[in-house]
Write a protein that binds this DNA or RNA. Structure first.
Lengths: 213, 213, 213, 213
DNA sequence: GTCTAAACGAGACGGTACGTCAGGTCTTGAA
DNA sequence: TTCAAGACCTGACGTACCGTCTCGTTTAGAC
């Protein structure tokens, strides 16, 4: 048996040698993918187009990613990581001044701003849409991007529970949805305008309830 | 000049004579579109496929609808209308037993069931996804399907306000999102499981707030 | 049995009542067909186009003619008849001055002129082309248009045989092809230019042969 | 710089790399094109049909040929070349036994046989018909296929002139039409039957003339 | 410092679906 | 019933991408 054969038998041809991967190509593909999604939208973004724009052969994309959705998702994750690093430690925890309502309002206002940022809007909308219809991608999108952010709310709510600002029997994972999901739905489905007043109101309603005290 | 001549002079060739439209074809196209979306999913549903399955020329589709999304949306609206008519007056108002929490829980449990119905899931997911990325379609989807349902919640909450079960200063249109949007997001984005307990909890949290009394 | 059934059984639907046929439409269709063939060529002449130009419904054409070729052939035959009537008796016989060569040259020169007439060229080329590939139409084209003209040559050659200007053992139907067919082929297949000198030469060669005497 | 690079720089994207062309596909397309023309005729032969029959993507045809006519013409030229190679040197010159009449009769009899060969008849009739109505194609058809054959007659007649069997003042290019064109017209237009006697007679008439000596 | 195997750019390949268009058939309403 | 109008079904058009598959050409690790 030739030595290279044994090498091949341990490595399927569908799993190329990652150590020899071209970093240049990877970066160029991320950039091209995000640029195209932003410019022409996700459906009209094609793998051929990404390859052409990145100055890369189509096979280089098909070698490393199984689908267009994966390329765009990974490119977006990369972008988010870079943005997070640029923003410093803020990404690791929500502010905790002791005033829960104020802290939540602050963070949600920042989210409102982010949702209006065109650089994020096009790709994240595209991925969200794909995730609606493609469960596997949707779950990955949530696990990699959404859930880590929601965990910060959970932490902050736990802290509030410890401080007695939130009832102990409340499930934080559900509670956070009271103010996060309405904002998400308005953004995703155009069911209403998004503003600081709106998110402030959400926090107030969620914390105090809508029933009379 | 005959009346129809003036009508014709204002109609260019891109807007065919709707009075001569074939009802048979329209129905067949609706059925085929919904069936295909349910069977192979929205992305793999093609206009060619709809035409073939409906026993209809492609041009007959392109003549009356500008895009695949429009065909499916209209087909889905038609389906919803039929379902509403079959269900009778239930669609016109939420139950109002005087017990707001119980009424909301009941309706949300019904929604949970509906969201698990495969006949509705495939097309509505497809349309929601398309609406995320296609604002025009999204707004139409909301206006025609979502908003009418949300209005029923508004009405019920107004009634509750009159009965003193909800604070008078609360905006019902926002308040309803406290329990509707979380469900919607879990369904759309797979951010969590959907169950009766979950929706019951949402109603409790929303009505009573999460802060201690 | 319903009354209309008996009506149908006595009259096949493919043979409508000719007595009620609109002469106006027939003429308009002939004119439109020839005009279109001349303007855009035979292949791009469509029954739809003829109907639109004639101000006639498509079905009116399909009712009376089985194919585009038939419409054009009939229109062309009609045109030829009219032209023949306008030209008087010249169509019934070739000139017979006693000088066979001169007579033939004269007639062939007239043919050269006719072949250069755009009003005749487009439809006759179109019909000839169709006839090459559609034997049934080709034979009809020949029988109705070509053969009557060739018969005049036969007559003239018979007269020449009687006068001793053509050998008695020569078959006139074949002999005429010596000068007619070369002209036809050059015209049909663009195998060479067409001029008076050319046709004169053909007559000389055909009458005298090309071998030395 | 490698030589092919400079070649590439002068070639835009509309002229693909011919060196990478698939010979298998080219052959399959030729075969399919000729088969379809023979079976259903030229007008009903479609590029889609050729592609399907050849087991080839449509784009592979559009990549290399600008039109259906070009595909079929090229396929037919290829067929002719192969037939010529199979026939050996006969294609390069007419027989020259010294007996002009006998040589011409022999060749014309072979032509008669060829005209009756179904493998040749369908595509050449289709191309001839198209050429009648499409001058550009017609001229190409003549230049590539007809004229090379006629040149052989010109050569043989020149040889006969040198031998004193044809008058020196005769133009061979015209003279050959005396026996070639009648046969062509009968075949193209169904103006008469085609037989050995007929072509023999044509040669006799053409060489000796039809006038008495 | 070679050697060599894999990743690379390029792009041709067999396909699918696109959206447009033309053509023959079928349906409707006016005369 | 004929006719005009035009919607219908069919199917070919030429284009855009798909995902696969070679081609040479880098390129980077092992010898």
């Amino acid at each position: 048996m030739a030595p290279n054969e044994s090498a091949r038998s341990t490595r399927d041809k569908h799993t190329p040698d990652a150590t020899r991967r071209s970093e240049r190509s990877r970066r160029a593909i991320y950039d091209a993918a995000l640029a195209l999604v932003a410019e022409v939208g996700y459906p009209r973004t094609t793998i051929e187009g990404i390859a052409a724009r990145a100055g890369v052969g189509k096979q280089t994309i098909y070698r490393w990613w199984p689908s267009k959705a994966d390329v765009v998702l990974e490119a977006f994750l990369d972008l988010s990581e870079q943005a997070a690093q640029a923003a410093g430690q803020e990404a690791h925890a929500l502010p905790d001044t002791g005033d829960l309502a104020a802290d939540l309002k602050l963070v949600l206002r920042a989210t409102v701003d982010e949702l209006h940022d065109p650089a994020f809007e096009a790709p994240s909308r595209a991925l969200a849409a794909e995730g609606v219809v493609n469960e596997e991608l949707g779950r990955r999108f949530v696990a990699k991007l959404l859930e880590p952010q929601l965990r910060l709310y959970v932490d902050r709510l736990r802290s509030a529970q410890a401080a007695g600002d939130v009832r102990a029997d409340v499930d934080p994972r559900i509670a956070l949805e009271l103010f996060v999901s309405p904002l998400a739905q308005r953004w995703l489905q155009y069911t209403g305008p998004i503003s600081y007043e709106y998110t402030d109101t959400l926090v107030d309603y969620a914390l105090g309830g809508i029933a009379p005290r």
